[in-house]
């Protein structure tokens, strides 16, 4: 169920260049079920900014009624969010959207988790839940450069983890798709979140595999009412049928929507 709540800031940690980890506490944590869902934050009380900001959930900690988000301070909203201190409150609407289907990967099977930049965070909760189910996880994480890398060790504790950077300053130089090809990684299910060109490349690279992709799009309401974040469907790419990224997604099966 979607709730609106003033959540308390527990911690705010800078993880990498412009990348922050924010931990919030609130009862709506107990509504969070699937990895890959997101929350919609009203960052300031006034009109600067006015609209909410969608941010993915990186980790759910039900015992403490807390959850973590990792975001990049980029625009006005996220820059203000990075100034929040422990003890502050922020208005949270969520959890929203449909996350990654974890039951698709069975016990003993292998899941490949591929993240790009600020698309990496939701894969952490996904990885935890898959490991809990007895699924073997392999992570391939892409970043711009060494200064943008985060959570490498935390992912490594869950399973094998490979990092790629565009400039080669950390891990392998190149794209995540290069790493997967070079290492010839075998898997049963692929889950990914990141920039659209990366998602497209993965969709094309593995047309016969079970692939699930989390999309990003500019949103208005976050609950499916405003029709800002729609995309065409794979079976009707030029027609009238559509999916809303916020409420039908943000996770879709590869081919379900036009990237």
């Amino acid at each position: 169920m979607i709730r609106q709540e003033q959540c308390k800031v527990i911690s705010q940690i800078k993880l990498a260049e412009n990348i922050y980890e924010l931990t919030l506490q609130g009862e709506l944590v107990h509504e969070m079920k699937e990895p890959g869902q997101f929350v919609h934050l009203k960052i300031s009380e006034g009109y600067d900014p006015m609209l909410r900001r969608p941010i993915s959930i990186a980790e759910i900690l039900p015992d403490e009624s807390q959850f973590k988000m990792i975001y990049r301070a980029e625009g006005r909203g996220t820059a203000l969010l990075s100034e929040k201190k422990p003890g502050d409150y922020t208005d949270v609407l969520g959890p929203l959207g449909n996350g990654f289907p974890i039951s698709v990967a069975g016990r003993g099977e292998t899941a490949l988790l591929v993240g790009g930049g600020i698309g990496v965070p939701p894969l952490y909760e996904l990885s935890k839940q898959l490991v809990n189910r007895g699924v073997k996880v392999i992570h391939v994480l892409g970043f711009q450069s060494a200064s943008a890398v985060f959570y490498e060790e935390k992912f490594a504790r869950q399973g094998e983890t490979f990092v790629a950077t565009a400039d080669g300053s950390a891990g392998t130089k190149g794209f995540v798709t290069d790493v997967i090809k070079r290492l010839n990684i075998d898997f049963d299910v692929l889950y990914s979140c990141g920039p659209t060109p990366m998602l497209k490349a993965l969709e094309n690279q593995f047309p016969h595999k079970k692939v699930f992709l989390s999309l990003e799009e500019r949103m208005g309401c976050g609950i499916g009412a405003c029709f800002a974040c729609v995309c065409h469907t794979g079976d009707d790419p030029e027609g009238y049928s559509y999916k809303k990224v916020c409420s039908d997604g943000p996770v879709f099966k590869a081919g379900e929507v036009v990237l």
Partner: peptide, 15 residues
């Protein structure tokens, strides 16, 4: 179907 995205942009005290 409507227009291509992006379909929304924030402005000062509005959208």
């Amino acid at each position: 179907f409507g227009n291509p995205t992006p379909r929304v942009a924030e402005t000062s005290a509005g959208m």
